[in-house]
Write a protein that binds this DNA or RNA. Structure first.
Lengths: 106, 106
DNA sequence: TTCTAAGATATGAATATTCATATATATGAA
DNA sequence: TTCATATATATGAATATTCATATCTTAGAA
């Protein structure tokens, strides 16, 4: 019964297994941006950023709005940013811990 | 300069892309368990649970403690559970939203 | 030392992901 | 309609992931 939830949860998490997509999410932290702005700021080919954005959109991590020729992307739910930030904290805590350990060893 | 952090962050997130591993994490929510207990409760072959636990351990999501022939696994950092719970909330909110939409359509 | 139970690791087939490249579609201006 | 810009999609090669199976290692008991 929970199986289905675990599967959906795992599916969403696949969104976060690409450094590029994490960068895109971070670029959208302070508000919406167009595909071109994102491509430029993340140093990615337009086709690839579009592919990543499709993955983000299909998993409801971002929503879109068209204005003329431009499409604006933004984070769908602030909790997504919170979750990402928590994981980053875990990562940074571990890095700090390992660094401290290395110091004590030397 | 952030590139490296994004890569490490993405790497950790790969841990959460398996429904089985999410189930293991949930089984460890209330404290440590042995490999056998986990295999039984998650309905997985011993070899596979061990493979998943290795992934979890290598990414510092769990820590281990040996007691005789048994090895006990537990969650390394409570923030990991918090992050998982946040993502699950996002998922459940979206599901509820879609359900409501379907109701209104009918 | 031998046996047994707990856990870890190696292997390979099936499957999925990522990127570069090419091509298609959509919008507004001329 | 034609053109230019913005965005999306299709394709395939390289790479990575997952599971079942077989094999190893470790710890304690006999």
């Amino acid at each position: 019964m929970n199986k289905k939830i675990y599967e959906m949860h795992a599916e969403i998490c696949k969104v976060f297994t690409s450094p590029k997509r994490l960068e895109i999410i971070n670029l959208l932290r302070d508000g919406e941006k167009t595909v071109n702005e994102l491509a430029e700021q993340a140093c990615l080919l337009q086709a690839n950023i579009s592919q990543h954005l499709t993955v983000l959109r299909q998993n409801n991590v971002v929503t879109t709005r068209r204005d003329g020729a431009n499409v604006y992307y933004k984070i769908a739910n602030p909790k997504i940013l919170q979750a990402c930030d928590l994981m980053r904290e875990v990562l940074l805590e571990k890095l700090a811990e390992n660094e401290e350990l290395a110091m004590r060893m030397s």
